[in-house]
Amino acid sequence: MDPRFLGIGDLDGTPSVAVVVDVMRAFTVAAWAFARGAEKIVLAGSLDEALALKARHPRWVTLKDGPSAPGFDAVNSPGLLRSLDLGGRTVVQKTTAGTVGALAVKEASLVLCAGFVVAEATARSLRTHAPGGVTFGVTGEDGHAEEDLACAQYIARRATGAETDAREFLRRAGRSRAAAELAQGVRQGVHPDDVALCLELDRFPFAMVAAPEDSLMVLRRSAAPPPGPR
């Protein structure tokens, strides 16, 4: 596999296969939403779009970065989301980096959204469906987020089937600016367990695939092939 690691603003054209990484916290939250029973996640392009979707579909669950706000049911925190019952529900997610990144590559033939919690399932999907070039979208901090780059590099190594010790990649993520801001309460809409939950390696056995559906970019869970050697 030939990986490229790019910030969303550095994308040149439409990649064939894209893995959009947002560890802290969009795609950790998305994985938790599926674990709590969500059927699908609509990736909204703006807060106004999310609110408009909520107005048309009152039972849909809306969530956003930062503090709670009128019209939104939840915030982008895995620690807070894990207590919700989302059985059979549609979630509308709008975040600063992750959803923006997924929408930027919506024309790709395969779009996977990932964090450490679904790293191995994502790597297995790449081994099966994308043996060639893969573009990893490092969404945070204009492509410089250490937690996203570490996760992307770990998934890329695992996608080759190489035995890989995850500890250094997780340490890098744990020392990142995003982890510090979450731990210190700099960001709003945060649970004390958020950093630890974002660093749970392979917490969930599924990958997450985003694709256009009826003019919307929709994220769904996808079963991954059986695991290989670690």
Rank of each mutant, 00 (worst) to 15 (best):
P3D: 06
L6C: 09
G7W: 09
G7N: 03
G9T: 05
D10T: 00
S16R: 13
V19L: 12
V21W: 13
M24H: 02
M24Y: 06
M24C: 11
A26T: 10
A30V: 02
A33G: 01
A38T: 06
G45Y: 04
L47H: 10
D48T: 13
A50W: 07
A52C: 01
L53E: 13
A55S: 13
V61A: 00
V61I: 15
V61L: 14
D65H: 05
G66Y: 08
P67A: 15
P67S: 12
S68P: 14
G71V: 12
V75E: 01
L81N: 01
R82T: 14
S83W: 04
D85N: 14
G88A: 08
T90A: 08
Q93W: 04
Q93T: 00
K94N: 08
K94Q: 07
G98R: 01
T99S: 09
G101R: 03
E107N: 10
A114R: 01
V117M: 05
V118T: 15
A119W: 11
T122I: 11
R124N: 07
R127P: 00
P131E: 10
V134E: 03
E147S: 04
A150F: 09
C151W: 11
A152V: 06
Y154M: 15
Y154N: 00
Y154Q: 01
I155A: 07
I155E: 09
R157D: 14
R158F: 09
T160Q: 12
T160E: 15
A162D: 13
E163R: 12
R167M: 08
E168S: 14
F169A: 15
R171H: 12
R172N: 08
G174I: 02
G174R: 09
R175I: 00
A178H: 15
G185P: 02
G185Q: 06
V186T: 14
D193G: 01
A196N: 04
L197R: 10
L201G: 07
L201C: 06
F206Q: 04
A210R: 02
A211F: 09
L216M: 13
V218P: 04
L219A: 06
A223T: 08
A223L: 13
